[in-house]
Design a protein around this nucleic acid. Sequence first.
DNA 1: AGCGTTATTGTGAATACCTCAGAATAACTG
DNA 2: CAGTTATTCTGAGGTATTCACAATAACGCT
Lengths: 174, 174
Amino acid sequence: MTSLTPETTNPHGGHTLEAMSALWSGELRSHGRRVTKQRLAVLAAVHGHPHSTAEEIVQHVREDLPTITVQSIYVVLADLTAIEMLRKFQPPGTPGLYETRTDDNHHHAFCIRCGRVEDVDCSVGEAPCLTPSESHGMTVLSADIVYRAICADCAAREAAEQESSSGPTAAVAP
Amino acid sequence: MTSLTPETTNPHGGHTLEAMSALWSGELRSHGRRVTKQRLAVLAAVHGHPHSTAEEIVQHVREDLPTITVQSIYVVLADLTAIEMLRKFQPPGTPGLYETRTDDNHHHAFCIRCGRVEDVDCSVGEAPCLTPSESHGMTVLSADIVYRAICADCAAREAAEQESSSGPTAAVAP
DNA sequence: AGCGTTATTGTGAATACCTCAGAATAACTG
DNA sequence: CAGTTATTCTGAGGTATTCACAATAACGCT
């Protein structure tokens, strides 16, 4: 922790890629999975680019492993999701998005205009939306929440367009 | 309400199909939409079979309109969803599901084993999961919640299978 | 370290779900 | 009832994802 060699510092936020890899390797093994460079590369890509689609992950992984195939990415993503090392969610009208934050109860806000996604720590408390722990005899495991929202940029842009259609600025002669 | 002719009684729960059609027609018109038999048939099908996929809705609608096409169903579903006469949601690994309950704050429990879906009236209160009304500058409109769950049947079946692998019952000679 | 076993990845193709552009039809207005 | 224009139909296309089988490489053992 006190060493300051180039290898131990990185822009990502405290943990080096090597440290993360070691962590991930252990976790993979504890789930009976082999540690492959493909899996580590996928984990690194998703960790570095949260809320990525499979296609985007392919691009990022190919910086390390230029020959990896789309199909392998899908297989790896599905498997890592199954053992909950990754989390998958799918706002309406978009392909599946992946992230590495799996152990906290957080959710997602999705801009229905531009598709932007932000993490939302559930503000009510611990796991408020898990309260219906029994319904119709079903045992609830977890809650996937997607907040349909409009981001600040889109709200501003729409306000401006609204203004221009009856106000003094812009769009004088269409 | 007091008439008891055959047309005014039906098994669905108080409202006749004709009454619903009149209601839907008015709602369509108020959204600037024309009242077509296709739209009414789709609304009736979804109303009679909540949590249906587009493909299932095609089957049901074809009982009335045998020649309707899958594409038209998709167009109608998308349009009715856009004006919020239908609600669409999509548990992981399944196609989009549609329902007519749009004006109440209810959510869905989804059995990750068999795919069964049940409505869940949010038990915490009014709209608890809408509390993060501002996050990252995004204005939240609504929350789509899918509870990942295991239904009673699947839980029982898995318990039985667990038992049989080390217990006395079943699967004596495979 | 080398070797065998078996999970994992790559290859090639296929599927499911959904959307698009343009022509034909039918719902509303007067 | 006739005209206008939304809506549906026809036919094709596209994207996200999955499948079966062959090739590869990670791990446990000596």
